[in-house]
Simulated assay, not measured.
Amino acid sequence: MPDGTADGTADITLLIVDDHPVVRDGLRGMFAATSGFEVLAEAADGREAVALAAELRPDVVLMDLRMPGGGGVEAITELARRGLPCKVLVLTTYDTDTDTIPAIEAGATGYLLKDAPRDDLFDAVRAAAEGRTVLSPAIASRLVSRVREPRGDSLSTRELEVLRLVARGTSNREIATELFISEATVKTHLTHIYAKLDVKDRAAAVATAYEKHLLP
């Protein structure tokens, strides 16, 4: 097992989290063939990732977002709640606001897309290990645009996504499935929505959201 690089610095230890075995194998092979990195373990979902991160204490967790059996945002939230020192670098194919914003709000150090060049990925992992924020150019550009846009409401991107699904008559269980989160998380989002809109139920939340032009 490698214990350091040629210049004497310690290897950056990694936990790879992705529900696709081929992706995990590919990432492990890439890092194994490059000095300065050590892959400690792999996880197929968010719950397994949290357990392994707590046990192994990697420097960086490479985290996919949408995974059956436990999504990435929930895992990032739990890692932060437990106060684990590992940095989370999201590595995913999804670049919509409904994916990026919740991940960053949950505590991700960086957000990279899977089509990033190999050297960019290595640089991003090194930066994340040092606690520096890393965002793919496309994500960074859209986040800047989003911040500059005036917002007349206080609902987060994820809360608006939940509210849109509620407006379609979608059940909590169906919302959880569509957004790759748990039913408990859906209920938490609804509680926050009710409080922010000063309403007490789903119907009132939807009606108020239309009045405030929060829903198309």
Rank of each mutant, 00 (worst) to 15 (best):
residue 204 A to L: 12
residue 141 S to D: 13
residue 178 E to S: 14
residue 59 D to S: 14
residue 74 E to Q: 13
residue 63 M to Q: 01
residue 176 A to S: 10
residue 120 D to R: 14
residue 59 D to I: 09
residue 166 V to T: 12
residue 92 T to D: 02
residue 28 R to S: 13
residue 68 P to Y: 08
residue 159 E to T: 05
residue 84 L to P: 01
residue 99 D to F: 12
residue 53 A to Q: 04
residue 61 V to K: 03
residue 81 R to V: 07
residue 185 T to N: 15
residue 54 A to P: 03
residue 195 A to E: 15
residue 108 A to C: 01
residue 44 A to K: 06
residue 51 A to Q: 09
residue 134 V to D: 04
residue 9 T to L: 13
residue 106 A to R: 09
residue 211 E to R: 14
residue 34 T to I: 11
residue 89 L to N: 01
residue 76 I to S: 02
residue 114 K to T: 00
residue 182 S to W: 09
residue 99 D to T: 06
residue 111 Y to G: 04
residue 8 G to W: 11
residue 83 G to L: 05
residue 1 M to C: 10
residue 96 T to E: 11
residue 194 Y to P: 00
residue 214 L to A: 05
residue 206 V to Y: 03
residue 44 A to S: 08
residue 60 V to G: 07
residue 96 T to A: 14
residue 91 L to R: 09
residue 98 T to W: 08
residue 214 L to R: 10
residue 82 R to S: 03
residue 121 L to W: 00
residue 174 E to A: 14
residue 116 A to W: 00
residue 34 T to Q: 13
residue 71 G to T: 10
residue 75 A to E: 00
residue 37 F to C: 05
residue 51 A to S: 07
residue 197 L to M: 07
residue 88 V to S: 05
residue 204 A to Q: 11
residue 180 F to S: 14
residue 39 V to Q: 05
residue 2 P to H: 15
residue 33 A to C: 03
residue 132 R to G: 10
residue 47 R to D: 03
residue 209 A to P: 02
residue 156 S to T: 15
residue 47 R to N: 07
residue 121 L to Q: 00
residue 21 P to A: 12
residue 57 R to P: 01
residue 170 T to V: 12
residue 130 E to M: 15
residue 179 L to T: 05
residue 178 E to K: 15
residue 21 P to I: 06
residue 120 D to W: 03
residue 116 A to K: 00
residue 158 R to M: 12
residue 54 A to W: 02
residue 199 V to N: 06
residue 182 S to R: 06
residue 125 V to M: 05
residue 214 L to W: 07
residue 191 T to Q: 13
residue 160 L to A: 05
residue 102 P to A: 04
residue 23 V to I: 11
residue 43 A to G: 00
residue 150 P to H: 07
residue 129 A to R: 11
residue 58 P to F: 08
residue 131 G to W: 09
residue 187 K to V: 13
residue 190 L to V: 04
residue 46 G to C: 10
residue 112 L to R: 00
residue 192 H to Y: 12
residue 70 G to D: 03
residue 193 I to G: 06
residue 182 S to Q: 08
residue 29 G to W: 01
residue 61 V to E: 02
residue 200 K to N: 13
residue 115 D to A: 00
residue 120 D to E: 12
residue 103 A to C: 10
residue 195 A to D: 12
residue 39 V to R: 04
residue 147 V to S: 15
residue 139 I to S: 08
residue 136 S to H: 14
residue 36 G to E: 06
residue 98 T to D: 12
residue 100 T to N: 09
residue 67 M to F: 02
residue 12 I to C: 03
residue 39 V to A: 09
residue 113 L to H: 02
residue 169 G to S: 04
